[in-house]
Design a protein around this nucleic acid. Structure first.
Lengths: 220, 220
DNA sequence: TAGATTGTTAATCGATTAACAATC
DNA sequence: TAGATTGTTAATCGATTAACAATC
């Protein structure tokens, strides 16, 4: 009966089924490439080109997309802005999402002033730091808030995502506080291994692992 | 005959076959988790714990490792430092590798002073910036060099990896120059889509795509 | 028309999962 | 001994690849 209820909810809200983890991950990456291609003034793009930038097979890309409609033109490719719209509809991530950034040091400042999040509708709505000297400093389009105001500001700005740009030793404590505020998605730029409840998603930036992997294949 | 020659080369140098892309990528991620666990003072770790931090299935982890030897103890788990050594042997990435960092701005400074690369034997041997005001500035354990000295310094320091912390608009030009110097591995922190020859590996940091992906699954 | 690229199928390959004996 | 976790097998699922007709 509870399973039946869930199916009914899906049927009422959206006719499509839940995407698999793999498909959702790949669609997100296509969206990133398309967004950047659009900024570079590209109108059209082929599955082959998307493949080069995502390292996903071109046939796989065409099949991922064709599962939701015929978005391309044979002999021509895909219209970039049309495809951006379609993927956003599929991912149901068309809205604006507010981010809380932790750490107003060099990394935090770089993140706050970068376009990488803004391009996808993510707004850095609050920045926190434990250093009293930094409180009130302008950063991106906001100012540094005291860490003690975390809970009320998360509530006030409807923040759903945390980005951790703090030292590794502080990361777990911040993660715990963030979870306590009801945030369920974190992006961790520190090298710390974050412990979090099962319903919380933690993505950890891992450039060193990617270099090791690349290095293995480049060695004779 | 050429195929036979290749097999002979492998047989002479190393008895093991080439790892698949998937295995090498996963082993690199296990190594990152183990390295961090070691820094946190952990002596032992179970496949289940590695699974939680890598999002790789615990059975998969055990099978990846058991293909190369019996590194674990039943009922106990894996010895962290022993396993670090074994994976380094498998990946043949035990040496020191020199990095050229491009961009001495906030992001570049954050990267240069972070432990994330140093923990895996990557040394930032040279930092380049086009801003004359920054030349000679200390950054990490080196100083900012003029961009014009790229080729001789890459040669002098045996640099094999480039890390791009430059604005998106400058990224492609830097990538072209880097490739011209013979570097074949790049890590790109900008949101730019980098074009490079097929034998060059470019990894682009993509926090926004990972957030979009996480967001999809966290939405009701 | 000729060339290019999508949409789609079928075959192969690798990853995931469940299960469990072995053993620390 | 009892509990825990590895090493390993088998079954299922999803990704990759090649191929090609459809069609812009």
């Amino acid at each position: 009966m509870s399973i039946g209820t869930r199916y009914n909810e899906y049927a009422a809200g959206t006719p499509t089924e839940r995407l698999s983890v793999g498909v959702a991950a790949r669609l997100s990456r296509y969206l990133q490439v398309l967004t950047q291609a659009s900024k570079m003034g590209r109108d059209r793009i082929s599955s082959q080109e998307i493949a080069e930038f995502t390292n996903v097979n071109a046939t796989q890309i065409r099949r991922d997309l064709s599962g939701f409609g015929k978005f391309g033109k044979r002999g021509v490719g895909y219209d970039v802005s049309l495809l951006i719209g379609e993927i956003r509809k599929i991912l149901r991530t068309q809205g604006q999402y507010n981010i809380a950034l932790f750490g107003a040091g060099r990394l935090g400042q770089a993140v706050a002033s970068s376009a990488v999040f803004a391009d996808h509708g993510f707004t850095v709505a609050a920045v926190f730091d434990v250093d009293p000297a930094r409180i009130g400093e302008p950063i991106g389009s906001t100012r540094v808030s005291p860490y003690g105001e975390l809970a009320p500001l998360v509530e006030e700005h409807s923040i759903t995502i945390a980005v951790l740009a703090v030292p590794a030793l502080a990361a777990q404590r911040v993660a715990d506080d963030v979870v306590a505020c009801g945030i369920r998605i974190m992006f961790n730029y520190s090298e710390a291994l974050i412990q979090a409840p099962a319903d919380v998603t933690v993505h950890t930036s891992n450039p060193a692992a990617e270099l090791l992997h690349a290095l293995y294949f480049s060695l004779a």
